[in-house]
């Protein structure tokens, strides 16, 4: 079953394009990454799914419901973590989480206490006294305590220190094991690489690619460094780019099947070889060129 399904979804702001012809299918139980730089249209897409923005054209279904007329039904089963957290200043975190809980039937109040301990959040402090990171922790707890079927996270780790980021990823993995589908939007590619099964790359409001994380990595450039006894004449296989000799060391970029590269390596009398996996930053830049 598709948890999110969009067809030619567009959102314009006057003459400016927010998102253009977005076609996505996200399956139940997936952790789906949504990668793009700032201003690419990530938040616009999310806000449209949530019913905060009205689509200019196209259709979208979330959890089987049409976003145009069943938005309320969608939000019953959805947890949302915004990139910027704006809460009611007069409330304490506890009051805010209790207020949030009032909108749902299935909130486990023990979970609030457990998560506040995990994330080291003082529930009795007023919202206006909290730092951005602590507000974010409150938002994380708020997004999961009603056991949503779908979690939509928009730049979720901004403001969290590495330790808290780690705890947050553990929480997400735990929620995913329980069956929660996760839509993870970020411009930090290492996060997507760590957590997601599949990812879409968005640029200027349009989807550039939708791939398995492994396919994204495999299809992309690898950096190779071969060490020979001495410099020699070689016949390069297709996919080798920018070969450069430095004494007996050859460095080059490779785009192509790994199998062919390994077969070629077997024919060479190598002293040493280093193949570097590209990080998502490189893949990301590849899609953008």
């Amino acid at each position: 079953m598709n948890i999110i399904e969009t067809s030619d979804l567009c959102k314009n702001y006057g003459n400016d394009v927010g998102i253009k012809n977005i076609n996505l299918e996200i399956k139940e139980g997936e952790i789906f990454g949504f990668i793009g730089p700032n201003g690419a249209g990530k938040s616009t897409f999310i806000r449209t799914l949530l019913g905060l923005l009205h689509p200019s054209s196209g259709t979208a279904k979330v959890l089987g419901y049409n976003i145009n007329n069943k938005s309320e039904e969608i939000r019953k089963k959805l947890g949302y973590l915004p990139s910027e957290v704006n809460y009611y200043d007069g409330m304490s975190s506890r009051e805010l989480l209790e207020y949030h809980s009032g909108f749902y039937d299935n909130v486990d109040m023990k979970k609030i206490r457990t998560l506040s301990e995990i994330f080291e959040l003082d529930l009795d402090r007023k919202i206006e006294e909290l730092s951005f990171g602590n507000k974010k922790k409150c938002a994380i707890i708020q997004s999961v305590i009603h056991e949503p079927d779908l979690l939509i996270l928009d730049e979720p780790t901004s403001g969290l220190d590495p330790l808290m980021q780690n705890r947050f990823f553990e929480l997400l993995e735990e929620e995913n094991k329980k069956g929660t589908t996760i839509f993870f939007s970020s411009h930090i590619l290492a996060e997507v690489q760590r957590l997601c099964n599949r990812a879409a790359v968005i640029r200027k409001g349009e989807i550039s690619a939708v791939e398995d994380i492994l396919s994204l990595l495999e299809k992309q450039m690898k950096k190779a460094r071969f060490v020979f006894k001495e410099k020699k004449e070689l016949t390069f296989i297709s996919g080798v780019q920018n070969p450069t000799w430095t004494n007996n060391k050859l460095t080059f970029d490779y785009i192509g099947p790994v199998k062919e590269l390994i077969q070629w390596m077997n024919q060479l009398e190598l002293q040493d070889a280093v193949l570097e996996e590209p990080d998502l930053e490189t893949i990301f830049m590849n899609y953008y060129q």
Partner: peptide, 14 residues
């Protein structure tokens, strides 16, 4: 103005 509408309008309420 305070952008708390985002909090409210993402709850299951019309």
């Amino acid at each position: 103005k305070d952008r708390t509408s985002e909090f409210l309008l993402t709850k299951p309420i019309s």
